[in-house]
Design a protein around this nucleic acid. Sequence first.
DNA 1: TTAATTTCTGATTAGAAAGTCAGAAATACT
DNA 2: AGTATTTCTGACTTTCTAATCAGAAATTAA
Lengths: 216, 216
Amino acid sequence: MAKALAQAPARKGPQTAIRIREAALELFSRLGFERATMAEIAAEAGVSQATLHYHFEDKFQLWRAAMLQLRAVIGEEERLLEAAMDSPPEVQLRMAMRLFLQISWRHPALGRIVALEGMAGGERLEWLDAHLIGPRNRRLAELAKAAIDSGALKPFPAEMLITTLQSAAAGVINLAPMMKTSFDIDVTQAPARAAHEQMILDALLGGLLTDPSATT
Amino acid sequence: MAKALAQAPARKGPQTAIRIREAALELFSRLGFERATMAEIAAEAGVSQATLHYHFEDKFQLWRAAMLQLRAVIGEEERLLEAAMDSPPEVQLRMAMRLFLQISWRHPALGRIVALEGMAGGERLEWLDAHLIGPRNRRLAELAKAAIDSGALKPFPAEMLITTLQSAAAGVINLAPMMKTSFDIDVTQAPARAAHEQMILDALLGGLLTDPSATT
DNA sequence: TTAATTTCTGATTAGAAAGTCAGAAATACT
DNA sequence: AGTATTTCTGACTTTCTAATCAGAAATTAA
């Protein structure tokens, strides 16, 4: 079932499991768990359906494996934030927002997954909370509380604030298909992305901070 | 199949079809089209699965029927907005946001549906755009453009702005299960809802308007 | 009451999707 | 070379779900 010894893989290169995870991540995040079928994922990865079951026990485990790929992404975010741990909380918060935007554009699957499972609740949300989003959510909430305590941020409930900021930042990215359908706008183009980043940082933090000029 | 003559209904009262639509709306909006099964909807409505097919041709038509219930909601929003058509655009926009918040709390299904189908794209998004969300989206974008032209709003791309405002406002509402899981907060309680409304209006429009003190 | 109509259900069917398995194909080891 | 191991696949089974249908139950109309 799994590789017992260190050995170069056969047949289709060492990338098979990786390609499967990537295909799974894309389809799971865009369509949700049940709408994404094993057959589709297999086709997208260019392997047979049985190969999926060779590498991954079942659909749920494939889903978890795909999600764990996002941990590297989260990890990167965390590392960059930790480097700025000595800065005032509102500066850290602004940096977190900027990071979140960049990462969301590069890995739109994360935001879509959170939106999908965060709405539905259930087993997969529990898993996501434990392994991916929970620690980050609570860390960011603490950051917001600190910024509020220091008087830099308006005193809104920190948890709602964090969720709202993330929803606002991910909105246009997640809803790219709707932007195309309703407005005939392709937001994935570079100029649109730049305008979006500008807008989110300017509009949201410009409105939330008690003294917007404090941070760049 | 359908009622041919005006006649009082039999058995389970005239409410059967309505109850089915309500159950369908709740499940479709929370879980998405495929994850919501006909059996679940039937159970939730307290009827047999076959009854669903008596009242509605197939699953997609049941989905559309459930969505059309939301048109009354949208209609209410539109009517109240039209009453203020002579106000300056930024006042209308603020009123639209306030309305959106109230309606989203009362009918959380709308925001969830938009989030679900707006991410996935496809046939149902096309239908939603044509029958529910497209006209409203485009009207709000025009409103934002007018507010920008008048100098009341910062010059961001109007379509992104509208989508972001709606995403921000609906975020906490849609992600209520995640708020519970990650923060153990039940945002459906009245005090939380009031704080949320306050936060959205203050934070978002306070940041976006060039002169925040202009509107109440 | 009787007949007609509408509403509803249990039983069944057809099809899709996840998951299994024996064995083929490729590679690594000796 | 030959053997062992890993990787992969086609064919199959099982489970789940939408959809069908004949007829029961309730109601109305006569």
